[in-house]
Design a protein around this nucleic acid. Structure first.
Length: 535
RNA sequence: GCCCCCGUAGCUCAACGGAUAGAGCGCUUGGCUUCGAACCAAGAGGUUGUGGGUUCAAAUCCUGCCGGGGGUACCA
């Protein structure tokens, strides 16, 4: 990574502990990379920023990495990378191929990420769906950074919401039998559970044998399986599905409760057992573990589940939840203390819900009211690549507004097609050229135009983007980078030619094209969209 | 009331505390007899909700206010 190399060089040239960054520059007038280290340092040392910058630059002078260095009027140091370095790095892409972009910063470390974990009381809707591509691309990006990643999902198959599910299913069942019945209070509105009952009626041969328990179990399995299939369509597969019912039936939930009691992290109040850790954030952290009727709450199982997470020998534990769970976060953080896990290595990442509109009408995402847009509907309507790319294009903390009318109408002009089209164009040239054989001795010096250089620079940024994403988990950068790389390629395509150029240029450009294809393929794999052969 | 998140171009969103705040869609204009025009080029469009503060530097950090979303259950 060129950026890392520059960072190290500068680091050695400034006092220890200086905080600074090296930035990739889109426009070459500020160099290929730049740093504002001198500005921060000048303040600290009470010196002129220009003088500080000169001091740093003198220490870097003569390094073959750089073609040029410059101090801007305001104290920025701008670096231009030598053509030779760029060309060598370009070769590196085709040497590493599908491993290009990887780094080893997480090597030897294990990470587990829980995401989606949708309630099995209805189909996955847009809200849960956002967590899918988010968790999945985060998992991939961390794998690229050397981590061993476990993808996990909690199947919430016990509790009050399941009772309600059962009651609602039973209502639909009785209705289908022509019996008089009324809709259960607090049941799940909408036609979906009626469809689940229809599926049950097809499966059970003797209708009179259907019991409420059997129907509920059927519904749970059916909904869960459907949701997993939808996730699969989005390219999401889990390594571990943890069932809450297993935590309860195996006694793990009970053990966790006893453990919390033993540790003095509980209290009795009005006949119920409360989680009540002794810390300064008490108010945010108290929660009922065992209800006064003796039944454990969901949080009791969550204690057991997180105990597993914390005691399983993993270095980093990540939960990805919808923002409506934010009140739950301090309680979970308190569990790190209970189980002696370094709180720095446990992270809860929240994403805001997607708001869906049809024109000006806002559709409320409520499973209870039955007013939601399912992930499946959206998949059918706009396609997987479009959906994944769109959901991944904004920071998790932003509230996205999805206008279904617009999304559908614009689907052919969606950025995802802009990006994929660049790849298809590159492939097309590769095809025309009739095969490519990698030659490590290739002469890349003919790549001298602005478009050549910028495309190379943009390709070499790929490992840096991966590294940044794995460091701060801001994976939406990937789609942004994809668009930028596509632009660099489209520009190159418009101005420069491959076919028909003289042999030396042709060979060098073809090499560049192969490098572009490779980076796109790696990038698409990590984002979770397809690399189409043609469009 | 208290807690979390958001407010940036007509719309949907970017921008590690850094240089002239950028993309896509939409709008105006130009470009296919050479690798795919799902593309490229040029243009219009901004007091980053608003008032203070911190900083060499603020869309970004702190704070008051306004507006929106979510939470605040012996639900999950």
């Amino acid at each position: 990574m060129i950026k890392d190399t520059i960072f190290q060089l500068v680091k050695n040239a400034v006092p220890e502990g200086t905080v600074f960054d090296v930035e990739f520059q889109e426009e070459e007038k500020f160099g290929h990379y730049s740093t504002s280290v001198a500005l921060a340092l000048a303040k600290k040392e009470k010196k002129n920023p220009i003088a500080v910058a000169e001091g740093i630059m003198n220490k870097l002078e003569g390094n073959p990495l750089f073609e040029k260095m410059e101090i801007a009027g305001n104290g920025f140091i701008n670096f231009w990378i030598s053509k030779q370095t760029l060309q060598e790095e370009l070769k590196n892409i085709l040497e590493k191929k599908n491993e290009y972009g990887r780094n080893t910063k997480g090597k030897g470390k294990k990470m587990r990420i829980e995401y989606v974990s949708a309630n099995p009381t209805g189909p996955i809707h847009i809200g849960n769906a956002r967590g899918g591509p988010y968790g999945e691309s985060l998992a991939r990006v961390c794998e690229e950074s050397g981590y061993e990643v476990l993808r996990e999902y909690l199947h919430n198959d016990v509790g009050g919401q399941i009772d309600k599910l059962g009651e609602t299913l039973w209502y639909w069942y009785k209705k289908s039998m022509g019996k008089e019945t009324s809709f259960p209070e607090g049941g799940y509105q909408g036609e979906y559970l009626g469809e689940v009952v229809n599926a049950a009626l097809k499966k059970f041969e003797h209708k009179e044998e259907i019991t409420a328990e059997a129907l509920t179990q059927f519904g749970l399995d059916y909904i869960f399986e459907n949701n997993m299939n939808v996730l699969k369509r989005m390219g999401i597969l889990f390594d571990l599905i943890r069932k809450e019912s297993d935590l309860v039936s195996s006694g793990k939930t009970r053990e966790a409760i006893d453990f919390a009691i033993k540790k003095g992290a509980t209290k009795e109040h009005e006949g119920a057992l409360w989680f009540s850790p002794k810390d300064e954030f008490l108010e945010d952290r108290e929660a009922v573990i065992v209800k006064s009727n003796g039944k454990p709450t969901y949080f009791a199982s969550d204690i057991a589940y997180h105990r597993e997470k914390f005691e399983s020998g993993y270095d980093i534990v990540i939960d990805i939840f919808g923002s409506n769970h934010h009140g739950h976060v301090p309680k979970l953080q308190a569990l790190t203390k209970l189980f002696g896990f370094d709180s720095e290595r446990f992270m809860v990442l929240l994403y805001q819900f997607v708001r869906v509109k049809r024109g000006t009408e806002i559709i409320k995402m409520s499973k209870r009211a039955g007013t939601y847009v399912t992930a499946e509907e959206l998949l059918d309507e706009v396609g997987k690549d479009n959906m994944v790319f769109s959901l991944l294009s904004s920071a998790p903390s932003t509230h996205i507004d999805f206008d279904l009318d617009v999304v559908k109408q614009q689907s052919m002009q969606n950025p995802v097609y802009y990006v994929q089209y660049a790849y298809v164009r590159a492939r097309s040239i590769g095809g025309k050229a009739g095969g490519f054989i990698y030659d490590s001795k290739i002469d890349l010096t003919p790549l001298t135009t602005n478009e050549d250089t910028f495309l190379i620079r943009k390709l070499l940024q790929f490992p840096e983007v991966i590294d940044m994403c794995a460091s701060d988990f801001e994976v939406h950068r990937l789609t942004r980078y994809a668009t930028e790389l596509a632009r660099a390629f489209h520009n190159f395509y418009e101005k420069e030619h491959v076919m028909g150029e003289e042999e030396k240029i042709f060979r060098a450009r073809l090499f560049l094209i192969e490098g572009t294809k490779t980076v796109f393929e790696n990038l698409f794999r990590i984002i979770g969209i397809t690399a189409p052969e043609n469009m």
